[in-house]
Design a protein around this nucleic acid. Structure first.
Lengths: 226, 226
DNA sequence: CTCTCAGGTATGGTCAGACCACATATGGTC
DNA sequence: GACCATATGTGGTCTGACCATACCTGAGAG
């Protein structure tokens, strides 16, 4: 007995209709979707199916639901791929589908590329310098890692590629505990600071190869295992 | 009036409980979750809240629901980050949060890295050669792109990093139409074939730099705009 | 006229219960 | 033992109800 034809659940159809509507009407972040009850009526389905479809969209960082009444209430289109990616990584790490080594490697790849790209394009480095100075004022590994994350995400932002930026942000989120442990193991953050300065300098001087090398050396310092 | 404390919806609590259970019991792909009605009873919530939580997990590629009865029925843990990433990219491209240029650039980055990694580690190249020969037998741009996608995904697989592999797969999925147009524009696929052969050769010879350069040159051929 | 505040109302969030379709289990029949 | 009708447990869906929230409205006070 062939089982080729997979059934289409109602909420999947709703999902497709909403997606088509977004495309057809050219909706973007900030625009509102009709209310759940209204959508259900328009599409001739139950409200629960609409809710499940909206839940999927919310998971993917595309809509945000606000209760209450007024212009800001209801399902609003947003654009937050970061949290979706973060959830994805966290769950798959938990399921042992992914290992931390793979996450760290991927981050290594992204950051080298982003630093080189930022250097080549002469991007604005003010976010980098301010994260650097906040790191200097950090009093605990937790605080240090927080601003360290900001520094490294700023490199991704400076690459000008929002997808890379979103991936970087979620990779760092997933690695947070791991990064804190790495800092605690090192004890001294002077070596990391030197690495940051070298990266920043290379980007400011428009030296892509140097920036990539600096990133690589810095990560080798921070995570000696790799 | 401060609105700092964000309310926690019931399904989010269910989500957290399920996630904790997965971690506590060490569940992995293939294991089953309790039935919806049973979960609802155990957690003291309505079935709809359980369903919404499961819908989120399904969206993230962590569970798959099967109707019916027997060992395979119910919510089963799986591990498919690919489709989640593909949906994510498609929706955000549709919302104009991302541009195709960013997707293509990211793919460029990943593929150079993966090819170099594959070359350095002496990975198995049989999937690459077989995709190559299937491309030779393709009769339409659609068919060609299908096997071309297999070839490039095989490079990512050969890197040994499952996260990179998953990202690559979803990037290619998102680019599918774009890739078909590129092939149609080129008309002749001989130049692409030569690029593939150079990539394959470099990987087989264990030449990371050569592999990265070959990938870069190949993508420049395929997408002259970049 | 303006301000204040209580009630109205539209919104998402949740639950309970019912029914359906589906696929396996079960047990009777031959 | 093989076959088939039925029971059972599963997700999928709908309906209707109620709650909490937050804006909106308008009456009343000043």
């Amino acid at each position: 007995m062939e089982r080729g034809g997979k059934r289409t659940r109602t909420f999947e159809e709703v999902l497709a209709r909403i997606e088509r509507r977004i495309a057809a009407d050219g909706l973007t972040a900030g625009d509102r979707l009709p209310a759940e009850r209204r959508l259900a009526e328009e599409l001739g389905v139950g409200r629960s199916s609409v809710r499940e479809a909206l839940r999927v969209l919310e998971t993917l960082g595309v809509v945000s639901s606000q209760v209450g009444r007024g212009p800001d209430a209801g399902a609003v289109l947003i654009s937050r791929p970061d949290s979706a990616l973060t959830d994805l990584l966290r769950l798959h790490l938990g399921l042992a589908t992914l290992e931390m080594r793979e996450v760290v490697d991927t981050r290594h790849m992204i950051e080298q590329w982003a630093a080189a790209r930022a250097a080549a394009s002469g991007a604005d480095t003010s976010a980098l310098t301010s994260a650097l100075s906040r790191m200097d004022r950090a009093r605990t590994p937790d605080e240090f890692v927080e601003h360290d994350t900001a520094f490294h995400c700023a490199i991704a932002d400076a690459s000008g590629n929002r997808l890379v930026s979103a991936i970087m942000r979620s990779l760092r989120d997933s690695m947070r505990r791991y990064a804190v442990e790495a800092v605690e193991r090192l004890g001294d953050t002077a070596i990391l600071r030197a690495g940051h300065v070298r990266i920043l300098t290379a980007i400011e001087q428009g030296d892509p190869d140097g920036a990539a090398r600096a990133v690589s050396a810095h990560l080798a310092d921070a995570y000696p295992g790799h």
